[in-house]
Amino acid sequence: MKAFGAKRAVDGVSFAVERGEVLGFLGPNGAGKSTTMRMITGFIPPTDGSVKVGGHDVVEAPLEVKRLIGYLPEAAPSYPDMTVAGFLSFAADMRGLAGDAKKRAIGRVIDLCFLDAVIHQSIDTLSKGYRHRTCLAQALIHDPDVLILDEPTDGLDPNQKHEVRNLIRELGASKAIVFSTHILEEVDAACTRAIIIDRGRIVANGTPDELRAMSDLAGAVTLHATSLGAEALTEKLAALEGVSRVEPVDGALRAYPQDKANAGALAAAVIALAGREGWRLDMVRTEEGQLDEVFRRITLPDTVKERAR
């Protein structure tokens, strides 16, 4: 728990990340993502509760914890008067790397973060994307077991975003990674698990598929038939066993299941019905559910939800 004065920024956020896991940390702005990450990395102390990394408590053994962690802070800060090479050399020194190990480490992160074109440039002359990756390189320099990345793709162009996501996924095979984002595609692209927090509390925790299944849409069957009027179709579909309601969507119809767990059966039932009735179907599709719909549903304040309806 973290309180700033009377305001509780993070409250009752509790989770564990194992090696080999990439945890996506989702939430609207101001939800407490950065605060949580700052507590994990030991930058700010928790008001209450504890953080353990690799068996060390971050308040009692801060140096042990900090040695295990590579951290990319939210704004990707770096010293603007240094060159990229100078900055990485400084980071390597701070991590206790020396001699050949230091040279190898710097070479490795330059390759990983595609920095070789700007290596001798002063950081304040770099574009935002390069600056961001320079700070990311700093987080990777000691090949840490734990990576805490606060919005690692913020400010990058689509190609760079793609590269960084791939990098996170690759690194995730051998490390424990926590990264925050408010871009939902990234959860699919890189995470093995995602946590959604809102106003300082965890509101959802699961694999991307599990989160998607929480969507209203999950398991619904959408179909488009040319042979019959929409009204007649709606009537027949609604009468079908296992269908809770039917809604028109862009000229097609969507049947929602009563029981999401049994969604597979619904598609079969709809197709069987179409066969019996002799409908000509252009398209039948079982919906997967959409993360953004789940995200919106659980993080919108109640008043806004009412208005949206």
Partner: peptide
């Protein structure tokens, strides 16, 4: 101002 304080204090130094 630059936020590098966060960097400095998350390196393993007292």
């Amino acid at each position: 101002r630059a936020g590098t304080l966060e960097l400095l204090f998350t390196f393993p130094v007292a």
